[in-house]
Design a protein around this nucleic acid. Structure first.
Lengths: 249, 249
DNA sequence: GGAAATTTGTGCGTATGTATC
DNA sequence: AGATACATACGCACAAATTTC
């Protein structure tokens, strides 16, 4: 990770902080060395022949790109951008473009039905057991909504990973992250918790059969049903706030 | 966009530059006012009661998030994060995690088959005409590979937008961006250009029928076929470089 | 078109709080 | 606990590009 060579002198129209950010990014990506620490800001400044100010600005960019984690008094450590970074970016776009949550949910449906098709083909007995444990854990925490939601999301992410496609797994996890913030604020996934557990067991059973078409249908039913729950909950809330108080007592 | 209030004093464990970046991001997202200019760095420094250095670092973060565009001598203008930002992020992850391009292509298949199903249901005669013009334009530039690839990508993005789901359109465009850099470097989409035009016309015809299942199948055939072209081209290249020179003359 | 004002880019020095050994 | 290394934060100065009049 030392030996960060010179800047691209050809494309030097950009400001220094950006050139340096790009150069370090290239080094991080190509060297592929993870969990390593970057040289200190002073050393980087000397190495690139620029002021520490420039290095600091470049590090902020790399941090925003999810490539480094800057710790006070510690140093800058290389990190991998992950699903949460994708979630944040998409969330920003969704908010700014006022994208309706139905559209977000539709994407979830597309990705997760595709994922479970592959998962049904590839899943092993051991992995099925892990999934079963996850559902058990959901059941145990049925009345602790925060934990239950967390387990629920993890179950879906596991299926994403079982697809065998790393990028699909990432996107499933990213959309889950987007919807988590989307839905949890205000809308507590309404009643039907036992029903929720039951329907997750149905997904598990479908995976057991190994039939992609069947598994896809079960997943689709589950997601559609979940979305209807959200809509119902939302309708109830708007009744309670917009209209007359429900229990005027 | 003036009136950027105070920082969250409750969550002040983060460094100042990050708190300020987050605060300004909130203001940008909620105010929803686009194309507007932020106050100058000096003014922001006064407003937040911090040094200009800190403001500059915050602006670099916002720039990396795709939220502002900083121009020398000009100022910082609000921008919307767009598909190219998503492409860059995914590209980083793909590189770092060494995700195979088959997996990337599989995602493209998932997204675009889903998109064309909706597009087939919703497309209007006017939109079909626009698509036809796009294919004509592809044909005109058949031998200018850069332009041809650009038109090709735009055709697929148009279908993404025709799905009526803004987020799906964004993801289709993002994955197209990922694959563009992925494939164009080194692999010039091999021969069969007339065939490529022909197959795009097939997609157009399928959209004319309005049948989602049929359109999906045509799109799937097209994408699978394109991918096989890439693989063939790749095999040829590895033969040419790894093995004996093909034309030793 | 040209000059002045504005604004970002770059550099340096210093003080402070934190992490690590 | 002390010492060292490091990031955070501030302030000032000048260069370079853009905007404005």
């Amino acid at each position: 990770m030392s030996n960060i060579l010179k800047l691209d002198e050809h494309i030097n129209k950009n400001p220094l902080y950006e050139q340096i950010a790009d150069t370090i990014e290239q080094a991080i990506i190509e060297q592929g060395s993870l969990a390593e620490r970057l040289p200190s800001e002073m050393d980087l400044a000397k190495e690139f022949g620029v002021s520490r100010t420039i290095i600091r600005e470049a590090l902020k960019i790399l941090k925003a790109r999810g490539l480094v984690d800057v710790r006070v008094g510690g140093g800058a450590y290389i990190t991998k951008p992950e699903a949460s970074d994708v979630s944040k970016l998409i969330l920003r776009i969704v908010h700014i473009d006022r994208i309706k949550d139905e559209e977000v949910y539709a994407i979830r449906l597309i990705l997760e039905t595709a994922a479970i098709r592959e998962a049904a083909r590839r899943v092993t007995p051991l992995e099925l057991e892990k999934l079963a444990e996850q559902v058990d854990s959901m059941e145990k925490n049925m009345y602790n909504l925060d934990v239950r939601i967390e387990k629920d999301c993890e179950f879906h992410c596991m299926i994403g990973r079982l697809s065998g496609n790393e990028l699909l797994a990432l996107l499933v996890e990213s959309m889950t992250g987007v919807l988590k913030k989307f839905i949890i604020d205000g809308i507590r996934v309404s009643g039907g918790n036992e029903d929720g557990i039951y329907r997750h067991r149905l997904i598990l059973d479908a995976l057991h059969t190994g039939d992609p078409d069947f598994a896809e249908n079960v997943m689709r039913d589950h997601l559609v049903h979940s979305w209807e729950n959200v809509l119902n909950q939302r309708a109830l809330e708007s009744l309670a706030t917009d209209g007359e108080p429900v229990m005027p007592q």
